[in-house]
């Protein structure tokens, strides 16, 4: 396995939930050491893609390789070994609500290692320091703001020194300051720890600021991909609408409905 081969290879992945088709043949390469962004409108299954990569969901066709291993062919034990090398940051933070910030960050260390408590303390404080929350170690998750909770979750995600981190909508619902902090942290951690990052988001400006490569997803397919600069100059109407955030375009403003006038008059279509 050479360093230049992609960390994650996604080939022709199909996935449907119930009768709703979510992915219809998705191909992607996620490069090592880069920040890769996956963007698309809400409801296009970006989070589902992360769960597929993490092996929590199973595609109906196609395959996903992480670090050369087919995620869905692994036995449970091997999958868990692989997951130790993946960090994931959930939209809500997903902190365990019944234990403190310190214990949350210590959780994966205590579960997976037999390190002495003094060593765990050092590691946890180090990770908390990296996200700037060393002082918040004794707080309960309920006492944290949304942005702080995400940073604690980030400290927890890097606790086991993974090779990659997946961010699920890291910027949603953040005030400008915490947004700035998170944007900076993602880039900084990626470069300082030699990670590979996958950011799933629909916040175009923030994501483009840190991404090395961007995939645009819509309607179960990859619409376009390239560096942020390439996408900004794309001549695809759809990409332009999404990147600029225009209200109307190829994605119509109106949900599919009967003709307006007829609807108001109560006529059958």
């Amino acid at each position: 396995m050479t360093e230049t081969s992609p960390l994650i290879k996604i080939r022709d992945v199909h996935f449907s939930r119930g009768s709703k088709l979510i992915f219809d043949g998705v191909n992607m390469d996620i490069q090592r050491g880069k920040v890769t962004a996956i963007m698309g409108p809400s409801g296009t299954g970006k989070t589902t893609l992360l769960k597929l990569i993490g092996g929590q969901l199973r595609p109906s066709a196609g395959f996903i390789e992480v670090d050369g291993e087919n995620v869905h062919r692994l036995r449970r034990k091997q999958l868990y070994l692989l997951r130790k090398k993946m960090g994931m940051l959930f939209q809500s933070g997903a902190l365990l609500t019944d234990i403190t910030v310190f214990d949350n960050v210590a959780f994966p260390l205590r579960e997976h290692t037999n390190l002495p408590e003094s060593m765990i303390r050092h590691l946890v404080l180090m990770k908390l320091h990296a996200v700037g929350l060393r002082g918040a170690r004794d707080l309960m998750p309920a006492e944290l703001s949304g942005g702080m909770a995400r940073r604690v979750a980030l400290a927890r995600a890097i606790a086991l020194d993974p090779m990659m981190i997946m961010y699920d909508e890291p910027f949603t619902g953040q005030d400008p300051i915490s947004m700035g902090v998170l944007v900076q942290l993602i880039r900084l951690l990626n470069d300082a720890l030699g990670l590979s990052s996958i950011v799933v988001s629909h916040d175009v400006k923030e994501t483009c600021a840190i991404a090395d490569y961007v995939y645009l997803v819509s309607g179960g397919k990859i619409v376009e991909h390239g560096s942020p600069a390439q996408l900004a100059e794309s001549d695809s109407e759809w990409s332009q609408q999404f990147m600029q955030g225009m209200a109307d375009g190829p994605v119509p403003f109106h949900y599919a409905a009967k003709e307006y006038a007829k609807d108001l008059l109560g006529l059958e279509a």
Binding site: K51, G54, Q56, Y80, L81, R83, K84, M86, G87, M88, F90, Q91, S92, A94, L95, L96, T97, F107, P108, E111, H112, A153, R156, L160
Partner: peptide, 22 residues
């Protein structure tokens, strides 16, 4: 149920901790 709703169980799975056992 709330742990599931707040993605704590999913989060555990992604930390390679089996929620059924833990």
């Amino acid at each position: 149920g709330l742990m599931k709703a707040t993605e704590q169980l999913s989060g555990m799975e992604m930390m390679a901790v089996d929620p059924v056992a833990r």
